[in-house]
C-alpha cells in the first residue's frame, strides 16, 4: 500500500519519485487529542493530487476531525492537539512558520450545513478575495463570475447577484459556498458531508461538480453515503473506532474500486456491505 513507500529503501527510489509528483498531502503517524482523549491514532496515508479521496466510517470515528487537520480548523476548538506530521506539497503545515490563516486560503472547506453569509450572492463570493486585498470592482466582478461558473451556479443566479445568499435553495446555497471557496483559488477542497443536508437533485449536481473540479483541485470528502463514496472518489479511506473510549484508526486505504469490490480487511467489508455503522 501507499504508506509502505514512505520511508523505503533505495531500490524503491524511482517509484517514490513517480509517486512524489502526484501526492498532494502526506500524513505520517498522526495522533489527535481532544484534551486528554486520544481521538485518532497512528494515521499514515498519502492523498493524491487531482483526485477525489473519500473518508468513510461509522459516526464518531473521527473522519471529520481528521479532515479538519488539513486546514487546521481544529485549532479553533480549544483543547485540541495534533501529534505527527501533515505535509502539504512537502511542507509541514504544523510547522512553526505556517500561519493557519494563510493555510486556509490554500485548503478550502465546505461544511455539512450550507453556510452562506447573511449578505448578497455577490458579496458572498467576493468575501474571500476582498479579505485578501482585491479591491477593484472589475477584478471582483471577474472572480465572482468565474467562481460561480466553476460551481455551476452562474446560470441560475446571474440576474440576482444582489439578492441575499440565504434566499437560495439548500442545494444552491451549497454550490454558492463552493463558489465562495473557489474564489480564493485553493489547491485543496475539503468537503465535510457536503450533501447530507440537501435534496437528491442537488446532490447529483454537486457530485458532477466534483468530477469537473478534480482536474484542478485536490478533493477530500467525508461521507456517510457508501454509494456516493463509490461514485465520486478515486481513493477511499476507511476509519473505525473499534472500542468506545479508544482512539479511532485508519483500517484500510486504497483505490476506491478495490475497497468496494475486494476489501483486504474483514472490517471494511462488513462496513461497506452494511453489517454495521
Amino acid at each position: 500500500m501507499t504508506d509502505t513507500l514512505s520511508q523505503s529503501t533505495s531500490q524503491a527510489a524511482p517509484d517514490v519519485v513517480a509517486e512524489e509528483a502526484t501526492v498532494k498531502i502526506r500524513v505520517r503517524d498522526l495522533d489527535f487529542y481532544y484534551d486528554d482523549f486520544n481521538a485518532l491514532t497512528g494515521i499514515t496515508c498519502d492523498i493524491k493530487a487531482q483526485a477525489v479521496t473519500a473518508f468513510i466510517g461509522p459516526s464518531g470515528c473521527g473522519k471529520s476531525t481528521f479532515l479538519r487537520c488539513f486546514n487546521r480548523m481544529n485549532d479553533l476548538i480549544p483543547g485540541t492537539r495534533v501529534v505527527g506530521t501533515v505535509l502539504l506539497d512537502g511542507q509541514d503545515i504544523y510547522g512553526p512558520d505556517v500561519d493557519p490563516v494563510d493555510l486556509r486560503r490554500r485548503v478550502g472547506m465546505i461544511f455539512q450545513q450550507p453556510n452562506p453569509f447573511p449578505m448578497s450572492i455577490y458579496d458572498n463570493v467576493a468575501y474571500g478575495p476582498r479579505l485578501h486585498g482585491v479591491k477593484k470592482k472589475s477584478d471582483l466582478d471577474d472572480i465572482v463570475k468565474t467562481s460561480l461558473k466553476r460551481a455551476n451556479l452562474w446560470k441560475e443566479v446571474k440576474d440576482i447577484l444582489d439578492r441575499g445568499g440565504l434566499t437560495l435553495s439548500g442545494g444552491q446555497q451549497q454550490r454558492l459556498c463552493i463558489a465562495r471557496v473557489l474564489a480564493v483559488q485553493p489547491d485543496v477542497l475539503l468537503m465535510d458531508e457536503p450533501c447530507s443536508a440537501i435534496d437528491p437533485t442537488s446532490v447529483q449536481k454537486i457530485e458532477d461538480l466534483m468530477a469537473e473540479l478534480k482536474s484542478t483541485v485536490t478533493i477530500i470528502i467525508v461521507t456517510h453515503n457508501m454509494q456516493q463514496a463509490a461514485r465520486v472518489s478515486d481513493d477511499t479511506a476507511f476509519f473505525l473506532q473499534e472500542v468506545m473510549g479508544e482512539p479511532a484508526h485508519l483500517v484500510e486505504f486504497g483505490r476506491t474500486a478495490e475497497i468496494f469490490t475486494s476489501p483486504k480487511d474483514k472490517r471494511t467489508e462488513d462496513y461497506i456491505t452494511g453489517r454495521f455503522g
Partner: peptide
C-alpha cells in the same frame, strides 16, 4: 458554522468578527 465559513476562507479572527 457561519464563523467557520469565514475562517475557512482564510479570514483572521478580527476579520471574521467585524465582517
Amino acid at each position: 458554522y457561519i464563523r467557520w465559513g469565514s475562517y475557512g476562507l482564510g479570514a483572521t479572527k478580527w476579520q471574521t468578527v467585524s465582517r
